[in-house]
Design a protein around this nucleic acid. Structure first.
Lengths: 238, 238
DNA sequence: GAGCTTGGCTACTGACCATTAGCCATCTCA
DNA sequence: TGAGATGGCTAATGGTCAGTAGCCAAGCTC
């Protein structure tokens, strides 16, 4: 790592005239392809590093190295390290809420609404596990205007699940002791997924979403419409 | 905070002769009571601060201030900041496993074993929420000999739940699609508890443990012994 | 082709921090 | 009473890091 770091250290600026740069200045597209939008490459690298090492332990030099530039050069693309974190965290909550709205729209049956909400929740946590992981671990690293924004959205998101369960309970479709605990349980399962899931493991994202959908309906104490109750068939993956 | 910090800054050592110290040297017990075991006070303060601010953001000076001494003085009681974290994290996993062993010992019915395991899990996460919270959030802050120790115990702990569920499934008492996902779900619910539970809230620790016990049995697809199935009665808190 | 813009770079600044060194007051115990 | 142990303290050390300043090369535009 950082192999090009201490080499062409170039005492003075004039050294660069003799070609001591290892990475030549190629700020814009050389051929047709735009050098792959630096801005988003930086965001991605930051995400990966924040997930792997934590926000505090990740330096701007680390992020720079991951995209092939030096730390200070990052400031030509982002305004601060904190901005990178805030974007990830707010974006994550916003996407979760948006996905949830899509998931339940046009569905009448409360059981089906819960299943789809949970599937969307799990899908997001599996597909965007780094975002979700960082989003949960680094709340305390956010400073104030942003931390409250994230916590507010998080609580909106939880409320959607809780109210769904309350509604189902009122209709007689669900049976729980506490809708709040049921919703926390369901959401916390998803958060867990972000910490252990990896593509190519025992389950696909779809299988995971389906299984967690069943589990959530069990937690909610769902009474089936017809005869068979939820998740009755052991071993039947999808 | 840190009010006594920048006051009696005492230019030279001889200044202390004129009594400029705000906190007089009283290293050992003045009366009969041992000054309240500094060592454990330090551990507690560190735990509280690690939970509130994160390990990296907590300074030795912070911990010192919390127990009324300066940062460097801590080294008379602990060998490093890292040691404080490692003790918390290893102790947490060790206690969880010990509690689990006690919880299932002497119980034959696999349903009851699962219920008691989950109740112990939830009780620990509610009663020692800071330990559990830090134990989950700071795994990456641990450096190597210790990180593997913690991860090893964590995986032992998960295996105990998974094998219990597998055994129950083999006996026909449980019905799950995947024992692994069931165990992850159950454990992740508990981890969540550590992040939101607070004494004096809507539920007592006992109520919480009982409710989560029911939820876990639902997740496991427990078939009741006799006639009534698990968690049938909505609103009946214990 | 001259000037502007873009996006690199190095050097530096100002903090902060874990830990060590070494001083000293108090307590304990012979 | 006096020597050693204990547990405070300040000062210093060695290191890290976010962000700024200012230089410069290459591309774009007129």
């Amino acid at each position: 790592m950082s192999s090009a770091q201490s080499e062409g250290h170039g005492r003075s600026h004039s050294a660069s005239r003799s070609g001591s740069y290892e990475r030549p200045h190629r700020p814009a597209r050389a051929d047709g392809a735009p050098v792959t939008d630096r801005r988003s490459a930086i965001r991605q690298a930051a995400l990966r590093l924040f997930a792997a090492q934590g926000y505090r332990s990740t330096t701007m030099a680390d992020i720079g190295a991951a995209v092939g530039i030096r730390g200070p050069s990052l400031y030509k693309h982002v305004t601060s390290k904190h901005e990178l974190l805030a974007e990830i965290m707010i974006g994550t909550m916003e996407q979760l809420i948006a996905d949830n709205i899509v998931a339940v729209s046009g569905i009448d049956d409360v059981r089906e609404q819960l299943r789809r909400s949970v599937e969307a929740h799990i899908r997001y946590h599996a597909r965007h596990r780094l975002e979700a992981f960082v989003g949960n671990r680094e709340i305390g690293s956010l400073d104030q205007p942003d931390q409250d924004r994230v916590l507010g959205r998080r609580s909106d998101y939880e409320r959607r699940f809780r109210e769904l369960i309350e509604q189902g309970a009122a209709e007689g479709a669900f049976h729980v002791q506490s809708a709040r605990i049921a919703s926390y349980s369901i959401l916390d399962m998803g958060i867990g997924v972000a910490s252990w899931f990896h593509e190519g493991g025992e389950f696909s994202v779809d299988q995971l979403a389906y299984q967690y959908g069943d589990i959530a309906l069990r937690i909610a104490g769902a009474r089936p419409h017809g005869g068979t109750s939820v998740g009755e068939e052991p071993g039947s993956l999808r």
